[in-house]
Amino acid sequence: MRETTPLWTPIALLGALLVLAWAAAAFDSVLGTALRLSGLGDPPREVARLLVQQRRRTPSADTLLMRAGVCGLPVVAVLAAAVLPLGDRPVADLAVGVVWFNAMEVCVWGSLWLTGWGPDSVYPLIGGYRAVAQGLAYELPHMFALITAALGAGSLNMSDVAGAQRGLWFAVWMPVAFAVYLVSALAMAFWGPMSRPVGSDIAGGVRAELSGPDRLVFQTGRYTLLVVAAAAAVPLFLGGGGGPVLPPWLWTLLKTVAVLAVLVWARHRLPAVRMDRFTWLSWLVLIPAALLQMLAVGIVVL
């Protein structure tokens, strides 16, 4: 850490994450109800319903592992968000922020697998293994996209990466890396086209047996992950808090909301992709494309 951040920044971060997660859920609901604004009330109704719902239990469940998985989801989302600059500085200004973000987001695989394993029930188990397969498929191009941004900035620190885009956004001169990042952002939150781990074809997959507060924590974690995935695109590719007139924190917020809206919208426009087909696409198209992009950026930087 370079300098200590004021005490209110972690609180502001948590507040912003919760509000944006709620906004994402509400927007998703509105899109799902043919743009009827009554969808805006769905998230609070769902929260109330889950809070009073009785827990459903399965015989010989491994409750410890399941709870660890469910609670891990929001925890790793917040830990990943800690290195993202809120305006000028992040809550934790790690020198290797990009790697930290990557590590926290890989922990999501563990969380999903544990949540799927815990109930000792077949559909969640299948969902858990789908999550691992999908993780292995998206992770390599995703890492290359992150490294390309870090290479362009010559630093693994998120603030430095954002600061290196004063002249030109990385999204403009490394479009392939940005596109790969957006695909993997969907996969990080197992959202939309990448939602097979919680697919309706296996009765909700990982979350099939979750009910009551467990399900509430899981869903909160999932929406928070979606927000964090969208928010990370801002310092990595969209110039961070840079912009005219408005203060940096407001630019960061506006850009995050824009990316988040695109991700939520994608769920309603794109079909879910099977993991083995996505592996094909990811390893045979996205990895070579990301490598060529990295080569191009490497040559420019040299």
Binding site: L94, A95, V96, V99, A103, V106, W109, G110, W113, V132
Partner: peptide
């Protein structure tokens, strides 16, 4: 040694998940 530390966390989580695949 923040780079090594974070890399250990990253690699070990991925490694254990791959182990879960082989387990089944």
């Amino acid at each position: 040694l923040s780079y090594l530390g974070v890399l250990i966390v990253l690699m070990m989580v991925m490694e254990m998940m791959v182990m879960a695949v082989f387990m089944i």
